[in-house]
């Protein structure tokens, strides 16, 4: 443990906390033109937890996720993964991007896309293929390894992106509006797939979305952001029974109550 970067506040409960976000601020530009996007965020994510970050469009959700993934340095404040300050993409972290058409390599087959991140991990070729096979099976795409991404539908492409993340065997999986560009039917399928995958692989998931239903349906806790500059409005425990079900859960009065609560929080000025 690197106690040097641990802060006093996070020490008492460090056993359970995987991700700690402290006073995270991000400002674009300097001087008079500076625009504050993230205005001192504080929250944490426990090990094995599914946390959804929900907020209105343009609230800086993607900026937040990029800071957490180590792709963007924060202006001040910090985030810690297992007590270690994030200053670059951590090895235990995988990210599913919003734009599946842009995040997959069109010149690589599905299988090669999935194994691309594995070749630097010092594992054998056979092991890489096995992992790709397992990951593709987990997302229901076992039969297309030699196809190219652009030969698949949008939903299938995002499955490939999820398989790529799973084969990487991360401890934390971050997802940036992963289902924003697929149709409703596929969206429900992919949401349930994500819940299944989380059960199967026991990973911690942080998912960013603007869809309130999706956030409440998926999450153990929902972090509600206000409009820009983003601050944490409230963190809501989703005490709806698991496993979740698209029909039953969404008909649950508690679910309706929670989504109204999130909606009001987002709408509040």
């Amino acid at each position: 443990m690197m106690t040097g970067v641990m802060t006093e506040a996070s020490i008492p409960e460090q056993t359970d906390q995987r991700l700690v976000i402290e006073e995270l601020r991000k400002t674009y530009g300097t001087g008079a033109a500076a625009k504050v996007v993230l205005d001192g965020l504080n929250f944490d994510v426990r090990s094995g937890e599914f946390v959804c970050i929900v907020g209105p469009s343009g609230a800086g959700k993607t900026t937040l996720l990029k800071c957490l993934a180590g792709l963007l340095p924060p202006t001040s404040g910090a985030s810690y993964l297992d007590g270690i300050q994030i200053d670059g993409p951590p090895e235990k972290l995988a990210l599913v991007f919003q734009e599946y058409t842009r995040s997959l390599m069109p010149w690589l087959t599905v299988e090669k896309n999935v194994t691309l991140p594995l070749s630097n991990k010092g594992i054998s070729k056979r092991e890489r293929r096995t992992r790709a096979q397992e990951a593709l099976e987990a997302v229901g795409l076992a039969d297309v390894p030699s196809k190219y991404p652009w030969q698949l539908s949008g939903g299938m492409q995002q499955r490939v992106a999820i398989a790529r993340a799973l084969a990487y065997q991360p401890e934390v999986l971050m997802m940036d509006e992963p289902f924003a560009s697929v149709d409703a039917q596929t969206r429900f399928e992919l949401e349930d797939l994500t819940l299944r995958v989380r059960e199967q692989f026991g990973i911690t998931i942080v998912l960013v979305t603007h869809d309130i239903d999706e956030a409440v349906y998926l999450a153990d806790r929902v972090v509600v952001l206000g409009s820009a500059p983003a601050q944490v409005r409230e963190i809501i425990d989703v005490d709806v029974t698991s496993p979740r079900d698209q029909v039953k859960t969404k008909a649950d009065p508690r679910f309706t109550e929670l989504r109204s609560r999130v909606f009001e929080l987002i709408r509040a000025r």
Binding site: A69, G70, G88, P89, L95, E99, S103
Partner: peptide, 22 residues
């Protein structure tokens, strides 16, 4: 596409793979 650069960073694709596969 800058997204590709982010993918290679997150998934630590580097060296020869980054050159020849990305």
């Amino acid at each position: 596409d800058p997204v590709l650069a982010e993918v290679t960073r997150v998934y630590r694709v580097s060296g020869r793979d980054r050159l020849f596969k990305v």
